[in-house]
């Protein structure tokens, strides 16, 4: 599967990319919202894993941007974040429906196996 990984922490970025590549996926990494959009201009992935706490722009802003483009509407988006899901729901209401989020993973309880499972 073609994966876009949007992860601002370089150590985690390497770990997740390593995990996804070792299970046969093609991974493109981005550290910021702008980098992610640049990569999407080059190639559209089948799945996006993204952190919501990005430098400069928030992940929500990136989600607005992603879902505003017709050709990106059907990409699976998996949130992989240090923000607990409940906190996001309290702040933004049912954003998962609004942005068509495939899965929400809270990093402390997410596992590498789960990430790999989602690309199968």
């Amino acid at each position: 599967m073609k994966v876009l990984l949007v992860e601002p922490d370089k150590i985690l970025q390497k770990t997740y990319a390593n995990a996804l590549e070792s299970s046969g996926n093609i991974v493109v990494s981005a550290s910021s919202a702008q980098q992610a959009l640049n990569e999407l201009n080059i190639e559209i992935p089948e799945i996006i894993f993204m952190e919501l706490e990005l430098t400069k722009n928030s992940g929500i802003e990136l989600l607005y941007e992603l879902r505003s483009y017709g050709d990106l509407d059907n990409i699976r988006i998996v949130i992989l974040s240090t923000i607990p899901e409940k906190e996001m729901l309290n702040k933004f209401g049912d954003f998962k429906v609004q942005f068509n989020i495939y899965k929400y993973l809270y990093k402390p309880s997410a596992t590498i196996n789960k990430l790999i499972e989602l690309t199968k």
Binding site: L12, N18, A19, K107, P108, I112, N113
Partner: peptide, 21 residues
């Protein structure tokens, strides 16, 4: 407290990756 989550997640996920590969 929030900030310390990051290195712990780095360690946790590196350990999980190690179990796989």
């Amino acid at each position: 407290a929030d900030n310390i989550k990051l290195p712990l997640i780095q360690i946790l996920h590196q350990a999980q990756l190690g179990k796989i590969n």
